[in-house]
Design a protein around this nucleic acid. Sequence first.
DNA 1: CAGATCACCTGCTTGC
DNA 2: TGCAAGCAGGTGATCT
Length: 220
Amino acid sequence: MSEQVAGRRIESVARRGKFIVIALDAGELSVHLGMTGKLLVSGVETPHSYGVFTMDDGVLLYDDPRQFGRIEWGDARASALGPEPLQVGVEAFTAALRRRKTRVKALLLNQAFLAGLGNIYVDEILFAAGIHPLARASRLSRLRIARLHQAMVDTLTLAIEHRGSSISDYVDADGNRGDFQMLHRVYGREGQPCANCGGPIKKILVAGRGTHFCAVCQRR
DNA sequence: CAGATCACCTGCTTGC
DNA sequence: TGCAAGCAGGTGATCT
């Protein structure tokens, strides 16, 4: 990768799903932060700095203790990604969900179905929509899917305003933490009272991931 | 063929 | 007190 990158100029930085796409004057880099990855401008190099890009006006570091993320040369198979959650219309979203029989949580996490949602946001969105994570996608009514779509837009918009959730690692390119974790209503709140009904937040395993929900407010 | 499960990796938390 | 096992999760390979 060093050969392709050397001497190139960064033209733009964009996002597609969970990928950060850095366009150069020739070719592009696709960065996926995985779970603990950080892309830092002028950060401090650590033993986990697996990518060090020296620029004319600073250093770009790719830091990833758990090594779940990656940097790839070229288009990170963007064609395999579904639509953006903030772009897809409610009609298309409804039609797509009704075609799938899988659990709604597994479907929302599927990047080929919808690009960009991770475990935290799916849990928060399903709570906001009052939908049980184990509900079958195809069995949800049009009204409930419309609520899910609205919850998705509202939750993501608010989370972006709060610059994301910093549970343990996440910081932006300037090293700043987000504070949306303060507004989580189910994620990481097992046993605590539901903001809506006061009942205890439950935690189960869905699609191999920790899944937090209110058994009273979220129906199948 | 689609959906479920496992492996990858390491820092932090939990439990004896 | 200290140490080992458990847990966290995005993705891709493997299994059912």
